[in-house]
Design a protein around this nucleic acid. Structure first.
Length: 279
DNA sequence: ATCCAGGCAGATG
DNA sequence: CATCTGCATGGA
């Protein structure tokens, strides 16, 4: 496919490294002062030119939508300030955009993510694409539902999916009979119910799929890091209840707050480790 | 070596 | 409704 080049101006509220490395997406690699990202059957290489980003890709419209340039992040950041933890988290991760990812890709990615480390999640997804996805030359596309459904549980086990192999196999086969495009029309809570009906999808994975795959921002995935971040504020509250309360609090901005909080809380741990190593 | 990771299903109070 | 357990795997 023909390559197109375009530039993205640098703004205080968009940083490619933060956006890719904040844990919302797994199909990317660092390449010098550039990043290569794959999404569905597209790939982009984004280079930091100092004053701007230079993008080389096969579909400009696809990636402009993918990177969510139409949302006013500065306005959201101002709205949700609390003078405390959330403000700190925004200050730290103010360059994050929520990517508009493919629904199927998000569902599969976040089933794999459960009880798993990010580097390992990346490897599992890479092996699924490498084996089942169409060869696009420089990379492999994310596989079609038909491919995912015909692979079989033992395939997913063989590439290291662990106990999630059965989930992936059954969900792929379920989705063969579903029109996911129709799901887009549902309300967030109805769409959450649809996702929760999938084998291996609970509240947390459903909310990640809603946020990253269906661009629903009135969700608040609660994982181990978010639990730690908000446990003092919501003592003795179940993860699901915590999610409900945070959605109530932040409404249409909940998903953004969640991602800033996740990125900040997780980064703080690694900074502590780095300091520990230096001693 | 032991713990833990973007949790979930199933079983049991 | 809430709480408990087993789960595959490999990085830290």
């Amino acid at each position: 496919m023909e390559q197109i080049e375009f530039s993205i101006p640098k703004t205080p509220t968009f940083d490619v490294e933060q956006t890719l490395d904040c844990g919302q997406v797994f199909r990317f690699v660092k390449d010098g002062n550039a990043f290569k990202v794959c999404a569905k059957n597209h790939m982009a290489r984004i280079e930091d030119k100092g004053c701007e980003y230079s993008v080389v890709c096969d579909d400009k419209d696809f990636f402009e939508k993918y990177f969510d340039f139409d949302t006013d992040y500065a306005a959201i950041q101002q709205t949700v300030q609390d003078g405390g933890f959330v403000s700190e988290a925004i200050e730290y991760g103010k360059g994050i955009h929520i990517l508009r990812q493919d629904p199927i890709e998000a569902i599969f990615s976040f089933i794999i993510s459960q009880n798993n480390h990010i580097p390992r999640i990346k490897g599992i997804i890479e092996r699924i694409c490498g084996t089942l996805g169409e060869d696009m030359g420089e990379y492999h596309a994310f596989p079609s539902v038909e491919k995912l459904a015909s692979a079989g549980e033992d395939f997913y086990a063989s590439i290291g999916a662990g106990y999630r192999a059965a989930y992936l196999d059954r969900v792929a086969k379920t989705l063969l009979d579903e029109d996911v495009n129709e799901w887009e029309k549902l309300s967030t809570s109805d769409l959450r119910s649809k996702l929760l009906s999938l084998y291996g999808v609970g509240r947390k994975v459903a909310d990640c799929a809603l946020l990253f795959g269906f661009s629903r921002f009135d969700v608040f995935p609660v994982d181990t890091w978010i639990k730690k971040a908000f446990e003092s504020e919501y003592e003795g509250v179940s993860p699901e209840k915590m999610s409900d309360l945070l959605i109530e609090k932040y409404g249409e901005n909940a998903g953004f707050v969640q991602q800033w909080a996740f990125y900040y809380k997780r980064a703080k741990k690694y900074r502590q480790n780095a300091l520990f190593v230096l001693k």
